[in-house]
Design a protein around this nucleic acid. Sequence first.
RNA 1: CGGGGUGUGGCGCAGCCAGGUAGCGCAUCUGCUUUGGGAGCAGAGGGUCGCCGGUUCAAAUCCGGCCACCCCGACCA
Length: 438
Amino acid sequence: MRRSRYFLPTLRENPAEAQIASHRLMLRAGMIRQSSAGIYSWLPLGLRVLSRIEQVVREEMDAAGCQEILMPAIQPAELWEESGRYQDYGKEMLRITDRHERPMLFGPTHEEVVTDIFRGAVRSYRDLPQNLYQIQWKFRDELRPRFGIMRGREFYMKDNYSFDIDHAGAVRSYNRMFVAYLRTFARLGLTSIPMQAESGAIGGDLSHEFIVLADTGESAVYCDPAWLDTDPLALAIDYEDDLQPVVDEWTRLYAATDDKHDPSTCPLAEDALYRGRGIEVGHIFYFGTKYSKAMGATVTDPEGNDVAVEMGSYGIGVSRLVGAIIEASHDEAGIVWPESSAPFAVGLINLRAGDAACDEACESLYARLTDAGIEVLYDDRDERAGVKFAEMELIGLPWQVAVGPRGVAAGTAELKARAGGEAEALPFDTVLARLTGD
RNA sequence: CGGGGUGUGGCGCAGCCAGGUAGCGCAUCUGCUUUGGGAGCAGAGGGUCGCCGGUUCAAAUCCGGCCACCCCGACCA
């Protein structure tokens, strides 16, 4: 993509309303624009990041045996009357009335809809287990939206729902999701820690929330320092195996948010404890037959009895992850994208646009990188070097390639990792080889 | 929902107390100079001062009502 044609409205100054780093940087980097309180438009750069994160989530869901569907954003209130949540949910639910005076709502979650789909389609235990997911915009009319995208009213979420014939099956489904979540966050370059959680409005008796570590996170966390050295991706996972030992291993270490942490019962000594801050990015629940009983989602078991299916639901805040990654990875100059969620892999800077030799060298690099399947943002504008460097730091692409008259004369370009380190002057072919991994 | 605050050009702000020509920096446009880390000079464009009403010869400024947004707390992917 040529910067001269790219819709990237960056801001030089900090918007007054943005308090935390991710909000400020997303506005400055031209990723989002606010529409109303807690509701945002996603501009090209932001949407690229959102889509990349979404894709990682999708791949891990598919790998864990889930199937993607898409349910309606607008739901009939009727279904929520059946589950009994229409009254319970309160003002966070955006209620809508259609032209026939039929009460509708903008979905804050989809247990009712998915249960309705299930009960109309599945009759036999032979069709279980089943695990359906969607990635979709949801709406919760938060009392006080804040922190930009981190706590918006409209938010992009992956939610999935498991259906099993019995408790043991449901726990297997739960464990699969537990592992898939650890893998997903690790792939995004985040350290996530599962913590025992309350089930809240969804209900149920088995629940973990996944907290991502970030210095500017909203809640304080206390955990065993061993968490910091764990790598979920190091473990080869077969989702057909019994994952209980894996989950046990992962939940063995101490971890608690500040509202749960109690120094008097904590197994670790005060000075052996890691204290940090974190952001909740995922939450998983096993809630058994709460919805299946209320809504009549039953199947016939091997003995010919009708039994209510055992369910669980699992959420990942996809749009929140954009903010969480920035909170976990930024510096004074701007965002520092991990490769797995970066909007472009490489930022190519022409330090002297209009200079024939620089233009030619850049065009060549741009074409060869693009041909190699690498996504490049090529700053071909007639701007001063400082402007281009500053913007490139702000938007945080993992690799910067700077081409100027000095280097071109010597047949080199400068390669620099956004995450740190000095720029290295390297022959064009070497730069290419480094970036393409050849 | 309780408490606090702010609405003035795209962004950041001053002006309001003591009513009288809407102003500054950044950004934008034009020209010249410049050209390896958010350039310099000269010029230009752009604002129903959140909305409605009131007071007044005169309202960004005073008064009343409404709306929006932000922050702190209690609550959440």
